[in-house]
Design a protein around this nucleic acid. Structure first.
Lengths: 358, 358
DNA sequence: GCTAGATGTGGTAGCGCTAACACATAAAGA
DNA sequence: TCTTTATGTGTTAGCGCTACCACATCTAGC
């Protein structure tokens, strides 16, 4: 009774305080806060005004307890691309902190680590899982989760199965757009560094590149396509092969930023200026892209946006799951963006190429 | 009543279930779970066994509600070093998810952005703040927080004020250790790239370097010390200056990994092999260190460890603050580690240097 | 007029947990 | 012996919120 004072920094305004202030019942305040209809417009306005005046902010713990829809969601990641993970986390947190959802993190490194991690998550009372790439493309992991009856959403999956929830960008279209931009800049001899062959994204990005080239009437010479593994080192090595041949490309399109950065390093080593003598572009827009010099032109995935979206999707799914309602898989596709920085320029010998994009 | 079934995926084991199963009161179970003493060892064991058997896991919302010590803590970051932020987040989350604490994130970019961000945090009912660098070294921000009466902890502050809570490593000692290692490897002409002059860490790292050199009887030539700004580009440029002079160094110690990576790039451009012809080492052990090639030898800060520690410290402080108890500032200093990767080697012309460290 | 519904509002109970007390029993001190 | 103190356990109440039902009103429709 007397201990009501001094909690939350003296900020212990409850729904009852608001109710008393307005002269309605707590229940009505609750309704307004939760945006239910069946409240007179006039009452709603008064309550809202009071909420503002008293700086009331709902107690999430109490709400979770009462609604019983508290959820714990797990994030499973395996590829420790820190930059990606970081942005993912930011997006997830933004959403979970609003929803009062608890977040559990599990990394699973080994090939069979997924089932262990999943077991651990389940044991911690986890209600749903977010899969970051490349897990989001794993049919094996998807199957385990399904068998467990655990709701899940895949983020940034390259080729999400139709029957699972996912949020992603269109890798094909993105590669298409980037390639087209390179052609616009006057490049004709464009080399490509593929990503890790185990990941669908690699394939899609390559297909996007190939298809654009063909559509533009340009041939994709086999010796201008190198296999990479998404690592800096592999980009470094691939670029060496690409640049040490007779018909040297004027541009290199790497399937991710790390490889692009590696390619830039190789170019410098060989005495080529970027972008003056060679254009190098990447994919993902991770921290790497803007920390090296010259900063990389790349394709930006709206990672944090995708992350919040996937949390929302997952929570919906969990609610449906609890209520015994069926939930139809949603495949959200977000927009990517071309980010032009300093590593790209018009092709050598092109007097004046269009600077505007279409 | 009937709706007790089917929640939390059928996993709605409460403290009462455990109590019934053991044959004690719920209160006793609660005591065991919270590790209170005054429980007979025998009872404790039985309860623990039941918890395990029933796979009970406490409902955090209920606990927060009952204890009234639910807390919202804010993380303020300004320098968007994504890799650092990411690891920080991981550490913070590990702790907050266990404590049922809610996390709010605020970035403050502008110079005066801090007060705006703080205002926003306060308005969201935030009970305490974690300051990541360089905010953790800002006396201005510290003052605002103090005036607000808001508990806070600084992470990775280089020179934490004695009257504020902080968790950090000893930048001086770390730079000392790294320099000593370079000397052990036979290097005598060692160049240093300083960090941003606005940050205390820069100064301490330099002092650590300088003092070790002097103690080893080596002189620190002014032309072998270059000013950097913690960016890749600044490391790139600084290295160019350092390497293009008569007494070329055999090793470069950069104050962070980004600058070290920039220095490696410059070396390659000048046709120098790393580490064969030049040793380059960094500081921080961010993702950059292990993604470039060769991978960087660097000093590792246990960021995620520091982060969890700071959350614990902050929560203690918040509790004290609420209870009206005074709280004496704690300055935690964690251990760093020297990580030797491929970018460092024995100095040129050193036939065989000791491989063991002391 | 009088039953059906809408529509707005209040009362009650309880989500799962733990302070705070009460009350045993055991050990230590006078 | 009778306190005093420690130790182990149970009882009660309530954290802040919302589900659920009850009860008013107010419309329609016959």
């Amino acid at each position: 009774m007397a201990r009501k004072v001094g909690r939350r920094g003296g900020n212990i305004v409850t729904i009852h305080d608001v109710a008393r202030h307005v002269g309605v019942s707590p229940m009505t305040v609750s309704r307004v806060i939760n945006g239910e209809k069946n409240v007179r417009e006039e009452t709603r306005a008064k309550v809202l005004a009071s909420v503002e005046a008293l700086k009331y902010s709902p107690n999430l713990a109490a709400r979770s307890l009462a609604t019983q829809d508290q959820a714990r969601i797990g994030l499973m990641y395996s590829n420790p691309s820190v930059a990606f993970l970081s942005e993912l986390l930011l997006g997830i947190l933004e959403e979970t902190s609003q929803a009062g959802t608890q977040l559990l993190i599990e990394s699973c490194d080994g090939p069979e680590g997924a089932s262990v991690a999943l077991e651990r998550l389940k044991h911690s009372g986890c209600d749903g899982v977010i899969l970051s790439p490349p897990l989001s493309d794993s049919t094996r992991v998807a199957k385990i989760l399904k068998d467990m009856g655990m709701p899940f959403v895949g983020v940034a999956a390259a080729r999400p199965a139709t029957d699972i929830c996912s949020v992603s960008i269109d890798d094909f279209k993105a590669a298409y757009a980037m390639t087209r931009r390179l052609i616009e800049l006057g490049h004709r001899t464009i080399a490509f560094i593929k990503g890790h062959p185990n990941q669908y994204a690699s394939q899609l990005r390559y297909e996007g590149f190939e298809s654009t080239m063909e559509r533009a009437g340009l041939t994709v010479e086999p010796q201008l396509v190198a296999q990479g593994y998404f690592t800096y080192r592999s980009g470094f090595d691939a670029a060496e092969r690409l640049l040490n041949q007779k018909n040297r490309p004027t541009a290199i399109f790497a399937s991710n930023d790390d490889m692009a950065a590696g390619a830039v390093a190789t170019a410098h080593r060989l005495g080529l200026e970027v972008p003056e003598q060679l254009t190098v572009v990447g994919f993902d827009d991770t921290a790497m892209a803007s920390s090296v010099w010259p900063e990389l032109t790349t394709v930006r995935q709206p990672i944090s946006d995708m992350a919040s979206m996937s949390v929302r999707l997952l929570l919906d799914q969990i609610r449906a799951h609890r209520a015994g309602r069926p939930f139809e898989a949603v495949r959200e596709v977000r927009d990517f963006a071309l980010i032009e920085r300093q590593s790209s320029d018009v092709a050598l010998g092109t007097p004046e190429a269009g600077e505007k994009d279409a």
